[in-house]
């Protein structure tokens, strides 16, 4: 596969916390319009890798390419504008805003950036928002089935719902690649299935050009929806490949997956 087909590439990323090597020479590629899984036991370095890719954490070595452009030294807010969005394992929501406002803000930052400043002096805050915005925001709310929550302040939500809000906010940025850090944890079985379906749908939808990099402990789901999977352990990339390859990999089995998990997923 040529470099043009990759929306996000991390090359030889190394990150240390004092003596601890959280990431050791990790390389990862996310092709366009696809779902890529990233799995590994607790403390493997998955969230740290997200930090390095999104620019919030500065790695000691390695580089990051976004849409063929070197963004290694680029700030997170610039990377966001260039098409990267992410969610957080510990939700990082805005305590004063409702669910809908989260999506609206993300939409405006992406598509009507000027309003960040011009609204301060203009009367637009009491005017009706433009139809295109309402449409886009409603579409995301519908996709994630959170109509019920839309007018709620986020401080009133249970953990599972806050994950949905994180995903909704990230989708509203209309990114090319979206990094999801354990979006399913805290959701019940039904919600979890619904979100997985929605994620598959946004990637296959024709009008979006979206890829997902998905960190998830629910390995069955990851194996089911990902095109390619990376396995991290103690900061090392120990395996990568298609779901089938991962299922049958002995290293992965030994390092991470219980035998049960493997046979279960192989069965379905």
């Amino acid at each position: 596969m040529s470099a043009d087909d990759q929306v996000l590439v991390g090359r030889s990323i190394t990150k240390r916390f004092g003596g601890l090597v959280a990431l050791n020479d990790v390389s990862i590629e996310v092709p366009k319009r696809s779902i890529v899984g990233l799995v590994g036991p607790n403390g493997a370095g998955k969230s740290t890798l997200f930090g390095c890719l999104s620019g919030l954490t500065r790695p000691e070595g390695g580089s990051v390419m976004l849409n063929g452009r070197d963004v290694t030294r680029t700030k997170p807010q610039k990377r966001a504008r260039l098409g990267m969005a992410r969610t957080f394992q510990q939700p990082e929501l805005f305590t004063g805003l409702t669910v809908r406002e989260h999506i609206v803000l993300a939409h405006r930052v992406r598509f009507e950036r000027r309003r960040l400043w011009s609204d301060m002096v203009g009367p637009r805050s009491i005017m009706k928002p433009p139809a295109s915005e309402t449409e886009a925001v409603d579409a995301i709310i519908e996709l994630l089935e959170i109509e019920r929550l839309a007018s709620m302040p986020v401080t009133a939500l249970p953990l599972g719902s806050t994950r949905l809000v994180e995903v909704a906010r990230a989708l509203a940025c209309a990114p090319d690649v979206l990094l999801l850090d354990e979006p399913l944890s805290g959701l019940d079985v039904n919600e979890s299935e619904a979100l997985a379906r929605a994620l598959v749908k946004v990637v296959t939808e024709a009008e979006r050009d979206l890829s997902l990099l998905l960190v998830e402990h629910d390995v069955a789901t990851v194996l089911a929806i990902s095109k390619k999977i990376y396995v991290l352990d103690f900061g090392q990339l120990i395996a990568s490949g298609t779901p089938d390859e991962i299922r049958s990999s002995d290293i992965v089995r030994a390092a991470y997956l219980g035998d049960d998990a493997v046979s279960e997923t192989a069965a379905d």
Partner: peptide, 8 residues
């Protein structure tokens, strides 16, 4: 972090 990764 939330604000920055949103592009603010």
């Amino acid at each position: 972090p939330g604000a920055r990764t949103l592009g603010i």
